Amino acid sequence: MGRNAGMKIGVFATFMSPIATPTMIRDFGKRAEDIGLDSIWMGEHVVLFDKNTFGYPGSKDGRIPVPEGGGMLDVTATFGFLAAETSRLRFGTGVALVPQRNPIYTAKEICTLDWLTDGRIDFGIGVGWNKEEVEACGYRWEDRGARCDEFLEVMRRLWTEPVVDFSGKWVKFETCRLDPKPIQKPHVPIIVGGYADAALRRAVRFGAGWYGFNRDPAGTREMLARLDDAFAKVGRKRADDFEIIITPPASMPMDAMQEYADLGVHRLVVNLGSQRPERVDQRMAEIEDLVTKAA
């Protein structure tokens, strides 16, 4: 694949019951590591609703494709389970819905995962699209962007400072300690997802990278130009180690992936799609071939 060499390949595999049994997840993690995958990424929704104000942007009908009678497994617990079965794979949240999470619990969960995995966690974050879910978790929908930024600042300080005083709109505490600190320094990488101008400003302020989901090469090129503009507005230039992570459209053929390498994408996180065993076997064979070509 020429210039594709060195691009890391991961898989987006949001595990769903009843198909994703402990045996299935354990075997999948070992298989992913054996074929040389860089990482496994999982999406997050804690609850789903029969009726939503806004549709899921990743499907044509606006609904999350969950098996009948099933649901999405929790990211933190699943990554802890997978980490115990692997030694090299990284694990990324794609994305953690920060403005509907308790920031102190989230900081604790993520740095504990980083501690237990010896630094194999990427904290992909976003503000979310599901109004009903945000409100069910006890927060307002309208101010989720500002709340996300405050929560990220709280987490970043708890991860890096021995003792923290914080006085914000949503979070207030004094002489607070959170340990253990993350293994990765200065802290667990924050990978910002989203396409609005506010998301790009968030990536510049907090991010070690930017994550684009379901982006084709043309859409990726457009977003990178906007991201560079966001950096320029604060007098900075996007650094070479600012990681660009993309999940291509599921329908995109594997032989088209070279276009992402030409754009400077660091990591492709290919969508696994169906978790039925025969479909997993087929898809993983395609991904393994991509890993070989990218090596």
Rank of each mutant, 00 (worst) to 15 (best):
P253N: 04
R283S: 05
P248K: 06
V280F: 12
P249R: 03
A250Q: 05
M254L: 07
A285D: 13
D262S: 14
R279P: 00
E278I: 06
I246P: 07
I245F: 00
L268E: 14
I244Y: 01
I245R: 10
R267V: 06
E286W: 09
V265M: 13
P277T: 05
M252H: 01
Q275K: 11
D240C: 03
A239V: 11
L268M: 14
A261G: 13
E288R: 15
V265Y: 04
S274G: 13
M252D: 03
M284K: 07
P253G: 03
I246S: 06
A256Q: 13
D281A: 09
Q275R: 13
D240S: 15
D281R: 15
Q282G: 07
F242E: 10
G264F: 00
M252K: 03
D281E: 15
L268D: 10
M284T: 02
R276K: 14
S251D: 11
Q282N: 10
P248A: 00
T247N: 04
P249M: 01
E286G: 08
Q275S: 06
G273L: 05
V269S: 13
Q258D: 11
P249G: 02
M257V: 09
P248V: 01
A239M: 13
R283H: 01
E288L: 10
E288A: 14
D240E: 15
P249I: 00
A256T: 05
P249V: 00
E288N: 11
G264T: 09
L268W: 12
A250N: 04
A285Y: 15
Q258S: 04
I246F: 03
H266E: 06
M257T: 10
E243R: 15
E243G: 05
V269Q: 08
I246H: 06
P277D: 07
L272F: 09
F242L: 07
T247D: 08
A256C: 08
S251G: 14
I244M: 08
Y260T: 05
I244C: 03
L272G: 04
L263V: 08
Q258A: 03
R283I: 10
Y260F: 14
T247P: 01
A239C: 13
R283T: 11
Q258F: 05
V270R: 11
